[in-house]
Design a protein around this nucleic acid. Sequence first.
DNA 1: CTCCTAAGTTTCACGTTGCAACTAGAAACT
DNA 2: AGTTTCTAGTTGCAACGTGAAACTTAGGAG
Lengths: 156, 156
Amino acid sequence: MGELRERLSECSLPAALEAMGERWSFLILRASFNGLHHFEEFQQELGIARNILANRLQRLVEHGILTRQPCPEDRRKIEYRLTDKGFALLPTMVALRQWGERWGTGEPAFPVLVDARDRKPIREVAVLSHDGRVLGKHDLIWALPSEVGQAERAAA
Amino acid sequence: MGELRERLSECSLPAALEAMGERWSFLILRASFNGLHHFEEFQQELGIARNILANRLQRLVEHGILTRQPCPEDRRKIEYRLTDKGFALLPTMVALRQWGERWGTGEPAFPVLVDARDRKPIREVAVLSHDGRVLGKHDLIWALPSEVGQAERAAA
DNA sequence: CTCCTAAGTTTCACGTTGCAACTAGAAACT
DNA sequence: AGTTTCTAGTTGCAACGTGAAACTTAGGAG
């Protein structure tokens, strides 16, 4: 347990926050998920200052979360698009949004994310065991990598 | 689709970020999840400035994410503990950490979160359909609440 | 040729962060 | 009882980040 506390800083959370931890980053990402692609769209949707928006877009591009390329048909316009790395932030974003909805002011979420196949809403994002049970407060413990069986060290 | 874009701001992500969006908030939360409870513990673990730490702890308490109470056996000490609302941020935190691990520097996560029952690592956090399928990039669409069947509007 | 639009950049006032030193209250030591 | 130590802060100040508004540059439209 002593070692556990000492090695806390080896977690990759700080690395993730280095890319996404600044103000506006998640809101730009959400707008991106919702189909916005251009500077002026982000600016009007979010009401963010233009210099800050430029800075954030540049950082997101540098971190490989968005790509930046001029539109072929109107070369004034720049298209910002999510990369796979950027898209992989969807579970984080949905989890955070669901938390805000459940514990915040209680507004119903909008828009709703639905399964394209049957248009039914998605499940609540949760921490699951290897066999798919939802794990709660008392079902979880922190462990050293050495304490975990060798065969099943895939997920974190 | 026009309405969808117009009503983007009704999402509860901004509310969530109001509570957790500042620098250090997630790292303090992680330390909390890992069993730290006292000011000096947070300060030494994170290397955060004392005034900022005091400010963040106060904000987290104000938002109902942590509780603050003096220890009975040593009344110099203050205990900060996660509330249920704070604990409910676990899926968000785990998702963010897993993203950092998968797409960041590639360090193996530490410590590992395991199922208390069998000590096997947890699954990767994902967006799931109502019947438990993992939904990917092309399996998801955004919908107006009105477009979703009345019976199944539970999750977001 | 002129006007307009998209995507920035610049300027400057203001707010936030971070380090270091200081403080108040409770416990421990002598 | 008096001094020291320990915990959880607060204060002061310099550096950095943010935000509103005006300005710039390249490309397209009439």
